[in-house]
């Protein structure tokens, strides 16, 4: 199974990696339990920074598409096929749009929403 990235593409490199791994899971090219290359191996093969591959792996792990088992390596998650359909970015954008609509409907101004959003994010940290 080959992965191809385009460094001239507008899509961030980590997103290209994530998308292709998810597509490979959906198409059945990668199945639950299959091992993935280490961060260093994939980064060197694609001539990318280790941090780019690490970010893609971290987000795929968060989405439960892959699972890291210490020194044994990184594997495709048991529920990967189901979870690879989920697009957290799209869901976040949808939920935020809904919330902003509700706030605007209540009469809140853009600047008030921005300040409140920034405050809420600060509290989260």
């Amino acid at each position: 199974m080959e992965i191809v990235i385009n460094i001239d593409d507008e899509t961030p490199l980590f997103s290209q990696l994530m998308e292709q791994i998810k597509k490979a899971v959906q198409s059945g090219n990668l199945s639950a339990g299959d091992s993935l290359p280490s961060i260093r191996q994939l980064a060197n093969d694609l001539d990318l920074n280790n941090k780019t591959v690490a970010k893609a792996y971290r987000l795929l792990e968060r989405d439960e598409v892959i699972v890291t088992r210490g020194y044994r390596g990184t594997f495709i998650h048991e529920q990967a096929k189901k979870n690879s359909d989920r697009d957290l970015n799209a869901w976040v954008a949808l939920e935020l749009t809904k919330t902003i609509d509700t706030l605007k409907h209540a009469g809140a101004m853009d600047s008030e929403i921005r300040i409140a959003f920034a405050e809420a994010m600060k509290k989260e940290r």
Binding site: M1, I3, V4, I5, L46
Partner: peptide, 17 residues
Amino acid sequence: MREENKAPKRSADLKRR
């Protein structure tokens, strides 16, 4: 060869060696 390689597309085998 690496310095001269300007191809935007790069590929790798998705298999742990």
